[in-house]
Design a protein around this nucleic acid. Sequence first.
DNA 1: AGTGTACTCGCAAATGATTTGCGTATTTTT
DNA 2: AAAAATACGCAAATCATTTGCGAGTACACT
Lengths: 123, 123
Amino acid sequence: MKKDYIFDVIKNSPNSLTAEEIYNNVSQNININLSTVYRTLNNLVDKDLVTKIVRQDKISYYELADNEHKHYLICDKCNQAYPTDMCDIEKIERKIKRETGFNITSHTLEFHGICPECSKNAK
Amino acid sequence: MKKDYIFDVIKNSPNSLTAEEIYNNVSQNININLSTVYRTLNNLVDKDLVTKIVRQDKISYYELADNEHKHYLICDKCNQAYPTDMCDIEKIERKIKRETGFNITSHTLEFHGICPECSKNAK
DNA sequence: AGTGTACTCGCAAATGATTTGCGTATTTTT
DNA sequence: AAAAATACGCAAATCATTTGCGAGTACACT
């Protein structure tokens, strides 16, 4: 099953990948079609094995699902996403709920900037 | 100039609008083409007169630019975006910078849930 | 008024990520 | 092994957005 190849790539990647990156990677080993990658990815997401992340650039990124609540530091130079678990938004959420009555179920947070690596290279 | 019609719609709208909503609105008064709307919108964004907001649904929303730093409470029922200025992320940003060296220049934050209105209607 | 330059627009076609229909293969169930 | 269910490739469809091009319009300078 090609699903296994796709899932393996995701499991072995330290960072989130686009469907195309996954496709390129898997293609090195077997014949596969991009639509199969997308279909499989949606499948894995439905089964909560993989998390789909929609970033501001309108491209979706996929990574191994884990229960940790994470956010990303996205470097505007190299476009890499670095996960961080620092997130004290719960307080803000409580405050909003208290003051507006809006019942928050989730949030997305994305930081943009320049990663240490790119800062270094810029010099 | 059709730009004025477009800018007017944005100015007079209490909430952010999609390109299509703007197109529909302007179309009631004058003949206009969707591509003109998009072109004009990009123009206004470049001039910092209008802010473009990319939401998780991959559709862009446009609203009058103001210098206030805002975030949105997005209702998953009615899909309306309610701005909020509650945002204490600066602390988190400082912490991240201190601990990772990542130089953050901006962030995006989006809350999802059910707005009071929809909560009420659900009953 | 005449000419040149620069926008402004409409239209149709292109884009690019993602999805879908459909027919064929492959696997799983009985 | 036959039937039922999935998986897959391929080509075409989607959908928001962009772009090329050609015509129309405005402004500037002589």
